[in-house]
Simulated assay, not measured.
Amino acid sequence: MPHYKLIYFAVRGKGEFIRQLFTLAGIEFEDFRQPLGSDEWPAMKRETPYGYLPVLEVDGKQLGQANAIAKFIANEHGLNGSNAWEAALIDSVGIHYDSLFEACRPFYKSWLKISDQTMEEAFKLSVEPGRDEFFPAICKFLRGNESGYIIGEKPSWIDLLVADHCTTFLRYNPNYLDKYPEAKAHMERIHSIPAIKKWIEAQPQTEI
């Protein structure tokens, strides 16, 4: 069995759904969490493939980019759809999500206090429009799939990614998904999977 080491910051961010993916697959991994603002980060940054985290080390070899890491793990362990078409649909949702993440970037900067905007301003001006671009398509997928998952008959890495995004913004604003009840039900379904539920309950509770 390869030695997996996931390197990310000590927050959920773009690393938590990958941690959950390992958990769902039943695969042991080293969960390395770098404190935000650590003096060690500038030196670490120079050693990463693209200058940011997460990074997955597999027997010492490095893979960057969160979605690429997730697809690698999912392909290895049957969590990337049941066929090539489902895998392509899952990938399309991942690309769709990239736009939402970019829309949320001003909010994350406000949370880190590296922006002149307040979190309230960033939420209203950036997060809400991004949400309203992203979730109609997700809810359409969910309404058309009796399994309760976004694509296919079993959970995939994209279910974990979308559900964890919802966690972040529901913690900030409990009304975040009021217009998208299918997405909220989906999040609850994913987080009730026994392995995921147990993992979440054991983790530090962070805002992001």
Rank of each mutant, 00 (worst) to 15 (best):
R189W: 11
L177H: 00
A10P: 01
D164Q: 15
L112E: 14
L170F: 08
L89Y: 06
D91H: 10
A87C: 02
L24A: 10
I208H: 15
Q205C: 09
L170S: 13
M187R: 15
R143M: 12
E76C: 05
G144S: 08
K140I: 00
R12P: 04
L56V: 00
K109R: 15
W199K: 13
D91W: 08
K71V: 11
A70Y: 01
A185R: 13
Y108S: 14
E133F: 11
K71G: 02
K113Y: 08
P54A: 04
I69F: 08
H165E: 12
V127S: 00
D159V: 07
F134K: 02
C104F: 12
I7E: 10
S82G: 14
Q62D: 03
C166Q: 10
F22R: 00
Q20S: 15
R12F: 07
G94L: 01
C166S: 13
C104P: 01
P106D: 06
L63W: 01
E40D: 15
A74F: 03
D164Y: 06
L79G: 00
Q34Y: 07
F22P: 05
R171W: 13
W85G: 06
K154M: 12
S126A: 10
A68M: 07
V162F: 07
R105T: 14
V58K: 07
L161F: 11
G81D: 10
K5C: 00
